[in-house]
Design a protein around this nucleic acid. Structure first.
Lengths: 292, 292
DNA sequence: GTTCCGCATGAATCGATAG
DNA sequence: ACTATCGATTCATGCGGAA
């Protein structure tokens, strides 16, 4: 079966109306934060944020399957020395639209922005809000199990640093086998706290959204040939990861530059998939990423 | 100067009225969660929680000094498969009382409660909400600095391995100077994510509140001879830590058993303080605990 | 080929300065 | 008084060049 990737250039509020009801298995997105990225996006002011976002969540509710999940990455900024409350107001309003606020995961950022202020420490975490249409939804917990305890953790860390490249090339040889043995033996279910680093300068897009984040949620809340939607595609991290994990993808982006950038990168991947789908494995299928 | 510890048996809402305006430097508390600990506290239902708590926060606002801080440890429970919104409603209502919601710290619990559910992972974090009466408040950041990350650590390690002998002999020369620069920068300011293990040392009280938590906030938001208040004292962790760090303490507890237990343990400490105050140092004055 | 060091660069936040 | 812009602060990360 062929994987389909649909990219749209335009405003999410309008584009989403084209999508049919109950057609998406998982939505993973990181909308532009209030007052951020003014140069590329409009820069939605914090006191208008809920008003701006609610029409979009209403459409997302319509297109999501009853068994599907909506993961929203967001963090309120400081306004006049105080945390703004628009995220909380958003949650309360979304519940009125019919959403269930199932869970709040924490993304603990290893490398947060530096700085020193007289009355505040550095902000090292963001919210990953999980919403559902129904109390029954698909969740594949076994797909995101993690190495257990300090013993396995340090062992794996050392190995991955020094021998990861070798490991990839020597499939089936001694090292690879050992690693997979450890993985089989020492696995536990993760918690609702994810401990990841933000990716640095690598991309042209300003938002640092590490690949592990969509990867984790795609594995957890969808299976192969499901459909993943990102209504604020940005540099396309969610879309690429969906493809890599053999899910259909739908991406919407309002900035033409990003849209084109993603489209160009998608094309060769699609061709590659048609040529030799079997050899195209997810980059980190071993699950050795740092999630606690 | 003598340290004073006042313990009250009774309902916070009533007892707090006895305390004078603007008399407390720091409030650190962990109130009974909604529907939790029903057998001991009578169990406030989640839909009445805000209504129950607001009169108390109003009194807390009155007794807190304008430069003081209120740290509230809380986490919403799951009701019918969904996170309840009473914490958010509480924040929004407290702002109407005049509180500034300055910051939300995350307590990342290393060893959270075990268990497995089909649609949910283990809950490994709690909120530590910081409220203030004024945008200017006392904060002693240097008291909670932590060892720096891998960069400086590996740097120092390497230097000490290769150049330790030379360094010792050539005091004041180029190398020694460089090293001491790094040594001074060995500590960094923490972030708003605290990574502590839960302690269960006070097994008589049902809430697991590790000593490091009040210790951290007491050091951060108060100085010696300041006054610390805990309106839901429980097993007295905050009170004991306040005493140990040479702060005055006020504790309120509605359950006679806890009240008596804390009172009995406080008496000998007070006597000890009178005997030899100088020798009584905080247990962890070196600050080497694991806070990120 | 390694390992190692130097350097730029972030979904930040505050306070001062300018219109 | 109120908003817009700018500099200073500071640390984990990944890259490129060097030993």
């Amino acid at each position: 079966m062929e994987l389909k990737t649909d990219l749209f250039l335009g405003d999410s509020k309008k584009i989403l109306k084209k999508l049919p009801d109950n057609s998406v298995d998982l939505i993973v997105t990181s909308p532009p934060y209030a007052d951020q990225r003014k140069d590329t996006y409009g820069g939605i002011s914090h006191d208008k944020y809920v008003e701006w976002f609610l029409p979009i969540t209403k459409e997302l509710f319509r297109v999501l399957k009853p068994t599907g999940t909506f993961i929203l990455n967001i963090k309120e900024k400081v306004v006049n020395g105080e945390r703004s409350t628009y995220v909380m107001e958003l949650i309360i309003e979304m519940r009125k639209q019919g959403w269930f606020w199932t869970e709040e995961f924490i993304w603990h950022k290893k490398n947060c922005f530096p700085g020193k202020w007289p009355n505040r420490f550095r902000d090292a975490w963001e919210r990953l809000l999980q919403f559902n249409k129904d109390k029954k939804f698909h969740m594949y917990q076994d797909e995101v199990m993690v190495p257990m305890g300090d013993w396995a953790k340090s062992r794996l860390k050392k190995l991955s640093e020094t021998d990861k490249v070798r490991d990839n090339s020597k499939v089936g040889s001694g090292f690879g086998k050992n690693i997979s043995n450890w993985l089989e033996r020492e696995k536990a279910y993760p918690t609702n706290v994810l401990h990841l680093a933000t990716e640095c300068s690598n991309k042209n897009h300003s938002a640092a959204f590490p690949e592990e984040l969509p990867e984790w949620f795609i594995k957890l809340f969808s299976k192969e040939n499901d459909t993943i939607l990102d209504p604020f595609m940005g540099s396309g991290t969610t879309i690429f990861m969906a493809n890599r994990l053999k899910r259909h993808a739908i991406g919407i982006e309002i900035v033409r530059e990003y849209y084109s950038m993603v489209k160009e990168q998608i094309e060769p991947v699609q061709l590659y998939l048609l040529e030799s789908k079997e050899n195209y494995e997810p980059i980190k299928s071993s699950g050795g990423y740092a999630v606690r």
